[in-house]
Design a protein around this nucleic acid. Structure first.
Length: 423
RNA sequence: GGAGAGGUGGCCGAGCGGCUGAAGGCAUCCGCCUGCUAAGCGGUUGUAGGGGUUAUUCUCUACCGAGGGUUCGAAUCCCUCCCUCUCCGCCA
């Protein structure tokens, strides 16, 4: 959510930001409803004030054992009017909130303006993605062949887009999670274990709802949602809190499975591990002082890159253009690794600064000094990292001429000393 | 799932349908006093949304778990829901 004062006072900046983000939004309707709402509030509150005053008179009269029937009659009318106005006001406010929740965050001024990924900018790259000059077997083939991956079992059990890892494939997943969590702990993140199913308020708090409703797995009976990322529970861990300034930055990390319906993506990137409905991920979340959030974004990016470097997996950093930014983000870097078989760069991490957009929705504040006022924090998050594509890259990049897959050095100790993967 | 208890300000805790934004205590901050320390005295300290003034403040409205209802008027009465605690049952 944006600051309503800003929204009212600077319609031009807002219009431009929404356009740069490539979002379609009826701002005029919003302004009209906002104006109507304020008029109704004024009317209702004037009446309430007079009601409060007269009620006191009535109580005074009663105390003096005088007759108050006249005033009571009058107030009956007033009360009914208030009820009517408040009824309308409620409808109007709900409509306005609904609209307001659909206003995207605006791009930071440093973000390149553009429509889609073609306009995003390559910031830098690390390592040689083509260093393995073998005829590379696609990860879905070598995975199946070595007994690390069972795609058919996944669809039998659940459906297409669900995968089963077996043997060292499963162990590799667990090893990656452990390695990542250990790295982040070393960098001062608190490790948290969180629920994977959350309520509606949490989903609204981080901005997945209402916009992304179709992409969520939803338990209707209880109105609960399977999380699409640990960002949701991690950020909502702070929901409604007022943090002392000296506690900032708050840095959290958690492993979780992520559930995504990927509605509308069928047929796209469907081979193997590239796009699945359930995957493992380690996530980092920060709540920081507003004036530090862009420095913190760079640090977050560095933390995410660090994981790839330790695994010795080549990557590149993309700065997303305005049109490619997610709904809630003001600025975002994507980390991509190269999958030789698909000849594609794949996103394995997304590091974003949401400024106070999420904090406003989730009511996360801080207090500058004791007794002072409160202010919204800035929130950031980044994957560190999403597993399946990393695994795909390992299966392909770490292939040996003898048809094996080598374990990246940093993972050997997490794999009980194993150097090659087998089923 | 069954039975009971409870949810009030930063915390603890009182509260007859009107005089309660809310007693009392603790904590906070400010000042006074006391030759250290401790204590004492007086004052102060919520959030949100409107409106006027504007980088000072003023004013109104709402908020006592949430949402409805009764009433001229509700923290206080009624209904629904949520959460916490205790006991029982059930299952990891």
């Amino acid at each position: 959510m944006l600051d309503r004062k800003f929204v009212r006072n600077d319609p031009e900046a807002l219009r431009k930001g929404i356009k740069d983000k490539g979002v379609d939004f009826n701002l005029d309707l919003f302004y009209q409803l906002d104006k109507d709402r304020r008029e109704l509030i004024q009317k209702s509150e004037d009446l309430k004030q007079s009601r409060n005053i007269v009620s006191k008179e009535i109580s005074q009269l009663k105390k003096e054992k005088k007759d108050a029937a006249d005033l009571i009659e009058k107030m009956k009318v007033t009360s009914n009017t208030i009820k009517k106005i408040d009824g309308n006001l409620k409808i109007l406010s709900e409509k306005l909130c609904e609209l307001e929740l659909a206003i995207p965050n605006l791009p930071h001024k440093s973000v390149p303006i553009g429509k889609n990924e073609q306009d995003s900018i390559l910031i830098r790259s690390w390592g040689d993605p083509f260093r393995n000059d073998l005829e590379i077997v696609p990860h879905w083939e070598i995975g199946e062949k070595l007994g690390l991956l069972d795609l058919e079992a996944g669809s039998t059990i659940s459906g297409s887009g669900f995968v089963v890892f077996r043997g060292d494939g499963a162990l590799l997943s667990r090893a990656l999670v452990n390695l990542m969590l250990d790295i982040h702990r070393d960098h001062g993140y608190e490790e948290v274990s969180i629920p994977y199913i959350v309520n509606r308020d949490s989903m609204i708090g981080t901005g997945q709802l209402p916009k992304m409703a179709d992409d969520m797995y939803h338990c209707e009976t209880d109105d609960l949602y399977c999380i699409p990322t640990a960002e949701v529970p991690l950020t909502n861990l702070l929901r409604g809190r007022v943090l002392p300034a000296e506690q900032l930055p708050v840095k959290l990390t958690a492993y979780s499975p992520c559930f995504r319906r990927e509605a509308g993506s069928y047929g796209k990137d469907t081979r193997g591990l590239i796009r699945v409905h359930q995957f493992d991920k380690v996530e980092m979340v920060k709540a920081v002082l507003p004036e530090t959030s862009y420095e913190e974004l760079e640090l977050l990016l560095k933390d995410a890159c660090g994981v790839l470097e330790i695994l010795d997996i080549p990557y590149r950093v993309i700065e997303l253009c305005s049109g490619d930014l997610s709904f809630a983000a003001a600025k975002c870097y994507d980390l991509e690794t190269y999958a030789p078989a698909a000849a594609k760069w794949l996103e394995v991490s997304s590091c974003s600064n949401f400024e106070d957009f999420q904090a406003r929705r989730a009511k996360i504040k801080f207090r500058k000094e004791k007794g002072g006022g409160t202010q919204f924090v800035h929130t950031l998050n980044g994957s560190g990292l999403a597993l399946p594509r990393i695994i795909a890259t390992i299966f392909e990049l770490y292939q040996t001429p003898t048809g094996k897959v080598r374990v990246p050095d940093a993972l050997v100790q997490y794999m009980g000393g194993k150097e090659y993967l087998e089923g």
